[in-house]
Design a protein around this nucleic acid. Sequence first.
DNA 1: ATGGCTTCATAGTGAAGA
Length: 256
Amino acid sequence: MTFRLATWNVNSLKVRLPHLLDWLARAKPDAVCLQETKTEDANFPLVELQGAGYQAVFCGQKAYNGVAILAHAMPTEVQHGIPDFPDDPKRVIAATVNDVRVVCLYAPNGQALGSDKYQYKLRWYEALAAWLEDELRRNPRLAVLGDLNVAPEDRDVHDPKRWAGQIHVSEPERAAMRKLVDIGLADAFRLFEQPHKEFSWWDYRLAAFQRNWGLRIDHIFLSPQLAQRCIACTIDKSPRKLERPSDHAPVVADLQ
DNA sequence: ATGGCTTCATAGTGAAGA
């Protein structure tokens, strides 16, 4: 029996609900972290998801952001936001699913180097790493999933020269992500040999998906205990090929 | 080529995403 964990930035749960239901039926994940639900809690499609066999905890708002954790088992010990980091956007939800502490994240985009939003992104990462360091001590079975909005290395970028120094790949952002991983987490995707040029996001413009002009910015980070149990991690590009897709593809990890 | 596409909030376009 494996435990399948996944993360997917759906870019509007309302628009993507048919794709999500189709994907849940095909991929059969045990727990899924969603980002950019762009849905107020009152409008969350709980009935439809329960009909597909999933419980859900969620934290949303109108128009932007919004995160959720879906699972076959009812998530417990739900936490919203980073403790002691007041933040209006709904970017963080954590819950326990079976014996795994699941943290679902939607990192700030950062917009442009040197902007206020960039500074906010770096501050957010700082607070996140401090919190998760503590969370890891309390929960040896910790899984951190989400749209982290950073491509950690040049091999996670379709054209490193074109992207050099840009948002999502700048050195301060990569340092912030390394600091997060260095609390003792493993990038599940890099535990395995992977094809070259595997990405999780492609711009809607310029037929970027068809040209595989993408970035790997959606991640699954695992505590040592879970990394030891991890037997596979892949990016599922199939929903990106559908009509009116999310610009992100799901990332999936299987635990023994 | 500083655009290109998509979403949402709007009822014209504009902001934001990445």
